[in-house]
Design a protein around this nucleic acid. Structure first.
Lengths: 146, 146
DNA sequence: CTTCCTGCAAAGTCTTTGCAGCACC
DNA sequence: GGTGCTGCAAAGACTTTGCAGGAAG
């Protein structure tokens, strides 16, 4: 499903729940859905402002809350300079966080489910989601300075 | 190594680095080292105050920073009501976070290293640490309300 | 028209910082 | 005694909230 298709789907679901479709909301949704770089709220806000200057940070926050509720965005890493969000792959998956440049990459090709399942079995927890973040230095930063 | 032994070891290392050993610091260290429940800074502060009322929150924060630097404490879950800390098992390990009662349990008996290693290999990252948090409902809360 | 949404500003939380005086070494 | 530490209070970063006016349905 591409970004525009998802956008239409989400807007439809919002309407069904009695929510409205304002230009700000659409712009914010589009910015989130198309962002592949795990942006902060601040970053989304700035992107939206480029195309649609009449938007406030508060509205972006309110929209994130909505998207989180709908499961269309996940929050990752509550660390430096604010939480970051992933609406591009809203299913839980590993992230690789570069402590040098702050960039966040998606961890791909490794199945985490077995570990999650094992922990769940061991603990009698009813696990609903997980977060796996690896911290380190990305290839680019390694090349730059050893 | 038990708590008191670790305490002595840490104090020794602090002194070697030109740091001092004040009653507050010792009390805070002891509270952190003996806490098995992943407390917040606020909780540690309250515990220290019981035995040693002349302590400020700022000092607890400063001491956490010191302990983090020394690798004697790890920060887990920057979620609701402040970061929580684990000085009892300061090596990275999975945590099971109950979204109902807020309790944090240690995930035991499952080796996460292979997954971390696989992700590291795949990504050309130089991974230094990781964080694996599972969110769900603990056994106690399940029993309580389905 | 009604209800939800927006934007502003204020408040709230958690954490950090500046600084004067005190206490460890 | 010198330097680091403490406690206070203020500042800071991020996020949430209250509210009046405006807009979607």
């Amino acid at each position: 499903m591409d970004t525009e298709e998802r956008l239409r789907d989400i807007l439809q679901r919002l309407q069904k729940d009695g929510h409205r479709m304002t230009p700000q909301r659409v712009a914010i949704l589009r910015a989130f859905l198309s962002a592949q770089d795990h942006p902060t709220v601040e970053q989304v806000y700035r992107r939206v402002c480029r195309d649609f200057p009449m938007t406030s940070l508060a509205t972006v926050y309110k929209t994130v809350a909505l998207l989180k509720e709908m499961g269309e965005v996940i929050e990752i890493s509550g660390d430096l300079q604010g939480s970051r969000y992933d609406a591009f792959h809203p299913e839980p998956h590993p992230h690789l966080i570069c402590t040098r440049c702050g960039q966040i990459y998606d961890g791909e090709g490794v199945d985490v489910q077995p570990v999650v399942a094992a922990l769940q079995a061991q603990s009698a927890f009813q696990v609903s989601t997980y977060r796996l973040d690896l911290y380190g230095v990305c290839a680019a930063c390694q090349a730059q300075s050893g």
